[in-house]
Amino acid sequence: MNVIVCMKQTFDTEAKITLTDGKINEEGVQWIINPYDEYAIEEALKIKEATEGTVTVVTIGPARVEEAVRTALAMGADDAVIVDDPAAFGDEFTAAEVLAAVIRTRTYDVILAGNQAVDDGSSQVAVRLAQLLDVPHVSTITKLTFDGAVAVAERDAEGDTEVVEVKLPALFTAQQGLNEPRYPSLLGIRKASKKPVEHVTVAGIGLAENAIAKRVAVTETFIPAQKGAGRILTGDTPERVRELVRELRQTSKVI
């Protein structure tokens, strides 16, 4: 089976986020593969090993994303496509359109992606992509098996497990618990630099820049206020309830 993995390079989860002129500062930040996408890559590699197919990684981002791509190739992916054209950097709508244009021309049985990126956390891109490609999708999966051209996925449904059958080709988004991503081996790292990586532009995949321009305007970016110390209410229950209601009304102003 041939698998396509949509991957995003994100801030290290331990990176300290700072703002400069209202924008997130990228200076000196460690970049990693989005952890949920790492599960997607691992699952793709397992499918490849079990069925003798190929794994192609597709990503959007500036020159620095090549590092994440090489790591995926070192883990065992076969080839990669990088859309490093700034015209492709927009919102979830833009990303889904770009990915769809790249993937549409390829043959695939399975598309895998993380269920969300740890930076923006919108959980939208992969699902939009399935819609654009007109393939079924199952999100937040924790197990994936195949029976001929049918996939059986277990998905995390708010603590319960749903078992979903879909016909291939289909798209799945990975949830924590799906697998344990491997470390790239040394030979894998050494081979990664020789694997094919295709750099494409928006025009090159047949898209018009204005047709995929972002539709969301970010009006403000700010760091949430530091959380103050908590307060434990005392007294009997009616007293504590009264105090809680008063706090919610007057201090937090949420009711």
Binding site: E67, R70, T71, A74, Y183, P184, L186, I189, R190, A192, S193
Partner: peptide, 15 residues
Amino acid sequence: SNEQSMIRDMVREFA
């Protein structure tokens, strides 16, 4: 080099 930093990162993560 890219390869050297990838090896360092992999070993760091593993270690």
